[in-house]
């Protein structure tokens, strides 16, 4: 299992920033995602997380998403999870957190 996570940041316009994360979102990697996201949301009102390349997400990864959701909720930034893979979608459904997070199938919906 890969323990690497690749995070790329793309400013789509003044309003929306897209962060693409690919690889394993777990205890070892979720901190990096949170850091990049915190920087991005300081300049943009809307954050989309493209998760289509996530191969694995554990409880620490889910915790990172929930912390990010709490953080963006507090400062009025809109957070959207885009193209959530099946394993992660299952995790969100089991934990009931799919009702708290905003999910979209693709970026064109934003």
């Amino acid at each position: 299992m890969s323990t690497d996570l690749t995070v790329t940041v793309h400013d789509r316009d003044d309003r929306l920033v897209v962060i693409t994360a690919a690889g394993a979102l777990d205890y070892g990697t979720s901190g990096a995602l949170l850091e990049q996201a915190a920087t991005a949301t300081s300049t943009h009102r809307s954050l989309a997380l493209d998760l289509s390349g996530i191969t694995f997400c554990d409880s620490s990864g889910l915790n990172a998403l929930l912390r990010l959701n709490r953080h963006t909720g507090a400062d009025g930034t809109a957070l959207t999870l885009v193209a959530v893979p099946d394993q992660l979608r299952r995790l969100l459904r089991i934990t009931g957190t799919d009702t708290v997070l905003t999910l979209r199938d693709n970026l064109t919906e934003l």
Binding site: L66, I94, T95, G96, T97, T99, V100
Partner: peptide
């Protein structure tokens, strides 16, 4: 059965 959020997350479900 509809799950409630994990304990400690305080999501208010």
């Amino acid at each position: 059965c509809r799950p409630t959020h994990p304990m400690g997350t305080g999501l208010g479900l």
